[in-house]
Structure formats: structure tokens, C-alpha cells
Simulated assay, not measured.
Amino acid sequence: MTMVTRREVEYQADGLTMIGHLALPAGVGRRPAVLLGPEGMGLSDVERDRADALAGLGYVVLAFDLHGGRYLGDPEEMLARCMPLLADPDRMRGLGHAALDVLRAEPRTDPGRIAAVGYGTGGIIGLELGRDGADLRAIATLNGLAAGRPGETARIRCPVWAGVGSEDPIMAPAQREEFAADMQAAGVDWRLVVYGGALHAFHHPPVDHPMVPGVGHHPRHAQRAWRDVIDLLTECVPVPE
């Protein structure tokens, strides 16, 4: 692990002033980069800590914002904002591209070696960036599975890793099958890992506010999913020695 420098970055997206979390590894040279997307509740210390951990491994990381600097701990408020967003691929792409532009503009970023890692809503945004032809070297999405509009998934030009809990009622078996069929038909290099016994957002530590039904933390699988993400990054965007 290397020393990490972190700072907030403001940028415009989805009609809001977003406040992202940029984490930089030690040194001065360019490094591979990761665009990190949060769950539907929005950017929290969970994603900030993950960004810092990835920066400690040598990556430039931007954990992006969904809600203009707000964390939506009220499930009804979260769903009222996220459901229309998830139904609008072009809006998701705009939000993702705005954050990706910030990451690309960082002088430490190697613009030819960027991966997207996302959770829930943030993961689906990463997929939509790929479907929009963004130059990404890998996409990882944990409990954020969605098939694309006809013909668009074939525009993904990098490996895709997806993870989901077997008991996740939000990403139910039918949705997993639709995602897998879409990836396979498009000729994408894809993997789907089903973590036995896990619910939705099993990677996320317990929170002190109400959650939508079907959410629950699974500590062992959370660690395994993190290692799976690191393995994908090591394969597709390795940090130079």
C-alpha cells in the first residue's frame, strides 16, 4: 500500500453540482485509473474508503456522486430519484461521462487505462458507459445488472465482471438471465458470479437507517467480491511495477 492523497472535486452532471472523491496514489507519474460508482443511496464513506484502498494499490480513483452531494438515507426518496434514472440510459450515460471526464482530466490518470467499478446504480452506469462506446479496459458491477437497448451491448469493448447474491430479490433470477443472454448475444467477454445465500447489497456494511427490503450484509462474500474486483483490475489494468 502506498500513501494516498485525497480531495473533493466539484463538477456538473444531471443538472446538479456533484461532489466526487478523488484519491491519488503516491508519486508523480501517470497511473491506471478507476471510476467508482456508488449504490443508489449515493456517495458515502464506504465508497470513499474503497477509493482510498484502490489508490493505495496504485490506482487513480474517482468515486463519483449521484445526488449533488447528498446521501439519500430515506428509501422512498432514494427510489423516487433512482427509478427514473435507471429507466433512462441516456441520463445515466450523461452522469457517467461527466465523472469520466473529470477522471480523464486528472494529470495522474493514464487515459488509455481506465476501468469502471460500480455498485447497484453505479454499476449499471458503468455498463451504460460501455454501451455508449466509452474507452474502458474493464467493467465490474456488483448487484447492478441490466440488459441494454437492442444492439448497444455489442459496443462494450472490454471484459465485464458481474456479481450478485443468489437470494437478491431486486436482481432476481429472471433479471440475471436477461443480463447474461444480452452479454452472450453481444459477444462480450463476460463473467457472472452468484454468491450463495447473499441478499442485495451484500457487500455494503450495515447502516443505521431503513433500507429497502431484500438488503443484507454478508461479510464473507463481501470480502470475496472485493478480491474478485481486484483480480479483474490486476488482469485488465495492472499497476506498473
Rank of each mutant, 00 (worst) to 15 (best):
M1V: 14
E10W: 13
A13M: 08
A13F: 11
G15M: 07
T17N: 12
M18W: 08
I19V: 15
H21M: 09
P25T: 04
R31N: 09
L35T: 04
G37Y: 09
E39Y: 07
G40Y: 13
S44D: 00
S44Y: 01
D49R: 08
R50L: 06
A51V: 00
A53N: 04
A53M: 05
L54W: 05
G58K: 00
V61C: 05
A63W: 01
D65A: 00
H67N: 00
G69H: 04
G69Y: 05
L72C: 02
P75S: 00
L86N: 01
D88R: 04
P89T: 06
R91G: 10
R93I: 08
H97L: 13
L100K: 05
T109G: 13
D110W: 10
R113D: 13
I114C: 12
V117T: 10
Y119S: 05
I125S: 12
G126S: 07
E128F: 06
A138M: 01
I139Y: 00
P150Y: 02
P150C: 01
E152A: 06
A154P: 00
R155S: 05
V160R: 05
V160E: 04
P173K: 05
A180E: 11
W190S: 06
R191N: 10
L192S: 03
L192A: 02
V194W: 04
A198Q: 07
L199K: 15
H200S: 03
H203R: 10
H204T: 10
P205N: 08
P210C: 12
P213M: 07
R220I: 14
R224V: 15
D231E: 07
L233P: 01
L233G: 05
V237I: 12
P240I: 10
